[in-house]
Structure formats: structure tokens, C-alpha cells
């Protein structure tokens, strides 16, 4: 018994060590953003807001922030719309080539971003759409729609199968049923999906970097700063980026978990 306790102790310690490894870069990025040294290390320098002041006074960073917000907002709405339509089609209908249809939707995230980025760059220049915010939005919606589809599909799994037909029997048209039954039912999943797709889009850098041209987003700015020199500005920007995406991801998870629990209680 003591041997097992000893083993459990080692395993738990190992687990904690792994979590430390995973969260170390996030923690240090935040710590170093308030640190006065140009090359951050331990022992830490003084507490300083220098890097924050620097990025606040940089119009380039502001422009990038605005671009990023626009891109992730439009992307999340578009991707959630596409994901919802696909999830509903999969839930409700059987049709020819359904496997192919689903593969078409779910494939993009398994292809390395750098390849998608190259393909997008070439294609969008060909059809004359490169270098605009729209180019990034189109690419991001393809990348994130599968996440939206997966989340909403899980919610549709929980729906009482007779609910829709009950609404029809009571005289509701298909459209009205969609509006008053299906959509309200999917609302928590839709909110989760909006947050999660926004988070993915907000952090994506490879495609944005390739197709954005002069309309840089925040990750592209970070990439460009990092290519030059060590510059703790990145930590200050990074801290903002972390908190934005963490807020989005945690919100998404809270909505997701809440309805998962409710589904189980039924």
C-alpha cells in the first residue's frame, strides 16, 4: 500500500511538472511584459510599464489591433453560420456523397497552415483578392468552420428527436421550426462556437502573414517584431493577446460545459 502511495505521489508530481511546462511560457510572457530589462532574465529588473506605454503610442499596433478585431469578428460570424448550416444538414438529412461532403468541411484543419497559406496566397492573387482584410477573413472562415460545425453538431445530438416533428404537427413551417425551436436550442453552442472561432482567428499568423499584404493583424506584427530583435514589446502585446484569447476560450468552455451538464441531468 505504501508503495502505491509512493508511486501516486511521483505521478502527481510529474503531472504538476507537465502543467508547469505547458504554462511556463504564458506566465513568463506576462511577467516579462512588466519588466524593465531589455533582455529579460532572472533576477528580474524593476517593475515597469515602459513596454505598454510604447505599444500604446504606436499607431501601427493600434491599426493591427483594429484589423484583428474586424477579422476575428467577421470570421467568427461567418464560420459559425457555415458550421451551423453544415451541422444541421448532417443531423437532419441523408444524401448522396455525404461522406465526401463532410470530408470537404472537416479537412482544412489537418493541412499544415503554411501549405494553406501558400495555396491561399496564390489563389487569391489569381482572382485578384489578395492583400485585403477580406482575404484573411475568407481563409480563416475555411479554417475555423469545422470547429463551429463540431460544437454545434454535438448540441444537435442532444436534441429530442421528436421535437422538430412535434413543431411541424402543430402547424409550424420548417422555417418557423428552425427559428423558434432549433435555433434557440442551439444558442449555447452557437455562443461557444462564436468565441472559439474568434479565438482561433485572432491568433492565426501563417495565413494572415502570407495574404494580408499591408493590412497587418496583431500576430503578423508580432511575427515581424520577433524577426528583427529581442524586443519586450512582444511580451506586452502578447499579454493582451493571451488575455483576449483566454477570455474567449474560457467563455466558450463555460457555455459548452453548462449545456453538457444540463444534457446529462435530463
Amino acid at each position: 500500500m505504501t508503495k502505491e502511495k509512493y508511486l501516486n505521489f511521483i505521478l502527481i508530481t510529474y503531472l504538476i511538472f507537465i502543467f508547469v511546462f505547458i504554462f511556463t511560457p504564458i506566465a513568463f510572457s506576462v511577467i516579462f511584459s512588466f519588466n524593465s530589462q531589455r533582455f529579460p532574465t532572472i533576477p528580474l529588473g524593476n517593475f515597469s510599464l515602459e513596454w505598454y506605454i510604447k505599444i500604446f503610442n504606436d499607431p501601427g499596433v493600434w491599426q493591427a489591433a483594429i484589423n484583428s478585431v474586424i477579422v476575428s469578428l467577421v470570421t467568427c460570424i461567418l464560420a459559425t453560420f457555415l458550421g451551423f448550416c453544415t451541422a444541421y444538414s448532417d443531423y437532419r438529412y441523408r444524401f448522396k456523397f455525404k461522406g465526401l461532403y463532410l470530408a470537404l468541411v472537416l479537412l482544412p484543419p489537418t493541412i499544415p497552415l503554411i501549405i494553406l497559406a501558400l495555396a491561399m496566397l496564390a489563389w487569391l492573387s489569381k482572382i485578384g483578392m489578395s492583400g485585403q482584410l477580406w482575404s484573411i477573413i475568407c481563409a480563416h472562415s475555411v479554417l475555423t468552420a469545422p470547429f463551429a460545425m463540431a460544437i454545434i453538431r454535438l448540441r444537435l445530438n442532444q436534441i429530442d428527436p421528436d421535437l422538430e416533428s412535434a413543431a411541424w404537427n402543430l402547424g409550424g413551417s420548417e422555417w418557423a421550426t428552425m427559428r423558434y425551436v432549433i435555433l434557440p436550442y442551439c444558442k449555447p453552442a452557437i455562443i461557444s462556437s462564436l468565441c472559439l472561432t474568434a479565438a482561433v482567428s485572432f491568433d492565426e499568423f501563417a495565413i494572415s502573414w502570407f495574404v494580408s499584404g499591408l493590412n497587418k493583424t496583431v500576430p503578423v506584427i508580432i511575427l515581424e517584431i520577433v524577426q528583427g530583435n529581442i524586443d519586450p514589446q512582444v511580451n506586452a502585446i502578447g499579454t493582451f493577446v493571451f488575455f483576449t484569447s483566454m477570455t474567449l476560450v474560457i467563455t466558450a468552455q463555460i457555455f459548452f460545459l453548462t449545456w453538457q451538464m444540463k444534457g446529462k441531468n435530463k
Binding site: 491568433d203 493571451f242 474567449l248 476560450v249
Partner: peptide, 14 residues
């Protein structure tokens, strides 16, 4: 779902 780029840069410094 949080910036891989910033985490990598953080490792660079570490």
C-alpha cells in the same frame, strides 16, 4: 487556442 507565436517567443527568452 492561445497564441503559439507568443509562447514560442517566450521560450526563446527562457
Amino acid at each position: 487556442f492561445t497564441s503559439y507565436l507568443v509562447r514560442t517567443f517566450s521560450w526563446y527568452v527562457i
